[in-house]
Each structure stands twice: as C-alpha cells, then as structure tokens.
Design a protein around this nucleic acid. Structure first.
Length: 431
RNA sequence: UCCCGAGUAACUCAGUCGGUAGAGUAGGUGGCUGUUAACCACCCUGUCGCUGGUUCGAGUCCAGCCUCGGGAGCCA
C-alpha cells in the first residue's frame, strides 16, 4: 500500500506520507492555502505555503473545488491550530478529478434536499458519524449472538404465507406460483429452526407496506430476531435485557467520537444497566390514565402514550402481557387469564418507545389452530408451522429488535430516516 | 386515509397595504503568510409549484390541483 489513512496519522508524526481522498473544504489566506481533506476515516488539514512548495503545486490547489478527489503527500506535524490536532505540510498534490458544482455546501440545507442527495450526503459529517455507529451496532448484535452460541438462520425474504396478520405487505407475482409477499418477519421460520439448533437468530431487511407517515417508520428496515427453545416469557426478557446492555456498552466503548460529533448526551445510555423496569400492560394503562391519556384497556399504545410512559423511567422498561386482541395469533395465552397473552415490548427511554417486541409462543397444537381460525387465516398456509407443534413441541420464546429504531435512540436522532444509508419511506424510493 | 404547514435564484430564506424581484451562501474575478462555516471588494444567478379567476396591475387576494414536510391512524 502506497498511502495511509487519516485515522492512523498519529503513528506517522514527522514522516512523509501520502493520503488519498476528497476535498472537504478549503480556505485561503493568499499565500497560504488550507485544504481540509477527508478519506472516509477522518479529516485532516493540509497546508500549502507559497515559497515552501513548488509554484506549480501551489497553483494547482487554486483549481480544487469542494469534493474533488485528490492525492496529497506531505509531512505529518502536530499543530494545535489544526482541527484534529495534526496537519500535513504538503510537498505534492495531484488532482484525480475536479468536482463541478457539488450541491451540498457547508451551509444549512433542508431535509428534502439532503435526502434527494443522499448518495452525496453520506459524505457529510453527521450521516457519516451515524452510519459508523450503525456499523458498530450491527457488529455488536452479531457478536452478542455468536458469543452466546445462537446459530444464524437466514430466513426467506419472499414468502407465501404471511407472518403476522395486522400489517400490510408488499406483494409481487412469483413466477407461476401465485402471489409472494416481502417478509415482515422471519420468526415463523426461526420457530422451525429451534428444534434443530436450540437458540437461533436471523438478521435481515423486513418490509411493511403501511402508509405510515411518522418519524418512527420506514417501509424497509432491518430487524434482528432471536428465538430460544425452552425459554419462557421471563427468560426471554432476561435475555433481551442482557442483549441490550451488551450492545449499548459496546457503542459507548467504540463510538465516543461519533456520539460527540452528534452531540449526543450519553448519560441516559450510561444508565442502561440491570434491572430494567418491568410493568404489566394493566399497570401501564393505569399510569397513562393518571397522566391524562385517553387510552382504553384493550388497545395498543399510541406514539404519544409511549412517549409519556418512557419519560416516567430513566432506564428501558418492559411492558408485558398485552391484551390478546391487540397481539398476533402465535402468542401464548396467559395460563390463568383469557384476555391477555404472554408477551413483552421493550420501550427505550427519553420518549423513544418500542425497540423490541417479544413473546412466548403458543406451543399447543389445538389452541393454535383455534387462534388461526379466530383470525380467519388460511389453515393450509400454516400447515408446516402447525407441524412444529406435533413433533416434539416445547415451550419457546423470541423477540425482534428494530435496528433503525435502536440506532435512532442510541444516537439521539429526531427522525428514523437518518439511521439507514438509503431510507425507504412512504414517499421516497430515490436515490 | 384524515388534520395542520410549506412551495420565490443551485441552496437557506426575506418580500410590509396588491404597484412590476432581494439578502446570505454556492459559483466567477481580484486582494490577503495561520485560516477554523475564514475574511474584504466587485460580478453573475428567477417558469415566484401548476391551472384558472378577481383586478388597470397578483409572489401577494380567491378557487382547484400537484409536490413535499410534520402529526394522527397503522406498525417495529
């Protein structure tokens, strides 16, 4: 390799190095030019002084425009005046390509403009920082499951039978086999895999065709789902707690710089420790009513309800045992109550709300058949799913964590669209 | 689908009572030997979202439509 990266520049103090990258910004003081060069790993200020560098090289820098690609060679020097602490005294400068009229200037832009130029906006500091945190978040998730001996099971994205019953699906013609749907969950397939592997997880994109128009919704988002044989609903919550603490600690350890760039107050993240609060749906409704919410027992929380609720707690809170009629057919009925199921949602603090939905699954053949019928679902589509209850059925539980919602909370973002490289929302399919 | 709000220069916006379009940024030219979103001077930039209406005259008032943003619902 004949060049080095800006993040390693501290190892080369006093040495002559070559960097390859893009011009982030430039300033000139006439006979001194300052070039801010970025290479994906950082930003460094390069200095060209007339008289100390060949005239043709000094003049070359006049041609540079924002985001032109270039190669620079110079001596690394520590300097407190430089952003980043180090700067490069240039001895050589080669233009790779001159960028013409780069649309994103160092001045404020509106979100529509920025997301119309998302392919370029990725280069800016804020999205760059967020997506670096995303990278670590995903690594932490995979790392946690690997360390805890969960087996990765990739579940299909094209499915015939539907997963849950409530949400709207993207539909496509599947050759000669009729309609296929883009997956909204891999859970049912994971339930098949636990009897083979015990503890499993899947991680992939999921799709919802709902015309949701809020700061918490994407039509395409990434979800990690885990499924565990012989775990009951409480074991499931213990696991989620441990899992979330692991990934938050990982981010706190690895992403100090990025969180600082995002001006994220990390004190709420530092409070993510055992035990999380656990309240029943019944208690949550009581608390909300006392706080003035119009919620009625039996309905799901609205966005506002979630915000009120999470602001009552300084750590994540589980709300467990929701009304049966507000939850999916596959959840296990409560052993002594007919109106609730064994499940739990995990709500992130600071008003962010639901990031995990989980439940113990219905492992009883007859009762599951009954629930499928009650929901008017086609029994034959679920034949394989029902088979799992015929051949060595066991108590089991699982959960799904929304990656973008989690990242939105960890980074303290105000809109989920910033948490994914190329967001797909109700009105956005470009770029 | 419903309720708000916004569409004016490449970008961010201002535009008073209806009187014929203006700032900053970007771009261009010149100046400046330590700039930090550099600064200073000058120059350039318009289908005022679209269609129609009222008027001597519409960016401005009225109607309809389009697009986008925020929220609700739905959902992770």
């Amino acid at each position: 390799m004949d060049f080095c990266y800006i993040e390693d520049i501290g190892k080369h103090e006093g040495e002559k190095v070559t960097l390859k990258g893009w011009l982030y910004n430039k300033r000139s003081k006439g006979k001194i030019h300052f070039l801010l060069v970025r290479d994906g790993t950082g930003i460094i200020q390069c200095v060209l002084t007339k008289g100390e560098v060949a005239d043709n090289i000094f003049n070359t820098s006049d041609e540079l425009t924002q985001e032109s690609s270039l190669e620079v060679t110079g001596t690394v020097r520590q300097d407190q005046r430089a952003p980043g602490g180090y700067e490069l005294n240039l001895s050589d400068l080669k233009i790779i390509q001159i960028a013409q009229d780069y649309p994103i200037t160092p001045k404020p832009h509106g979100t529509t403009f920025l997301f119309d130029h998302r392919h370029l906006y990725l280069r800016s500091r804020r999205p760059h920082a967020i997506l670096k945190v995303r990278n670590e978040l995903i690594w932490a998730i995979r790392n946690y499951f690997y360390k805890n001996k969960f087996v990765l099971i990739d579940t299909p994205l094209l499915t015939g039978s539907v997963g849950e019953t409530t949400s709207t699906l993207f539909e496509t013609q599947y050759l000669n086999e009729g309609k296929a749907y883009l997956a909204q969950t891999g859970q049912l397939y994971l339930e098949a895999a636990i009897a083979a592997f015990g503890k499993v997880y899947c991680f992939g994109p999921t799709f919802r065709a709902e015309k949701s128009k809020t700061r918490r919704h994407l039509t395409e988002f990434w979800m990690v789902e885990a499924e565990e044989a012989f775990y009951d609903n409480d074991d499931n919550m213990d696991l989620q707690e441990d899992f979330l603490i692991f990934i938050v600690n990982w981010i706190l350890e690895k992403c100090q710089e990025e969180l600082k760039e995002l001006e994220r107050d990390i004190s709420p993240l530092e409070k993510v420790k055992k035990p999380f609060y656990r309240i029943s749906y019944d208690e949550a409704v009581e608390k909300l009513k006392k706080a003035g919410s119009k919620i009625e027992w039996g309905t799901d929380f609205g966005g506002e309800d979630e915000t009120i609720l999470t602001k009552m707690f300084d750590r994540p809170v589980f709300v467990y045992n929701y009304p049966k009629k507000a939850r999916a057919f596959y959840m296990k009925p409560h052993p002594t109550r007919d109106d609730v199921v064994l499940c739990a949602d995990l709500l992130a603090p600071e008003g962010y709300g639901e990031i995990i939905g989980g439940s113990q699954r219905n492992d009883d053949y007859d009762s599951l058949v009954q629930r499928i019928k009650e929901e008017n679902l086609p029994l034959d589509a679920y034949k394989w799913f029902l088979d799992l209850r015929k051949y060595g059925s066991v108590p089991h539980s699982g959960f799904g964590l929304g990656v973008e919602r989690t990242l939105t909370w960890i980074c303290g973002l105000s809109h989920i669209r910033e948490s994914i490289p190329f967001p797909r929302t109700i009105y956005r399919l470009y770029p």
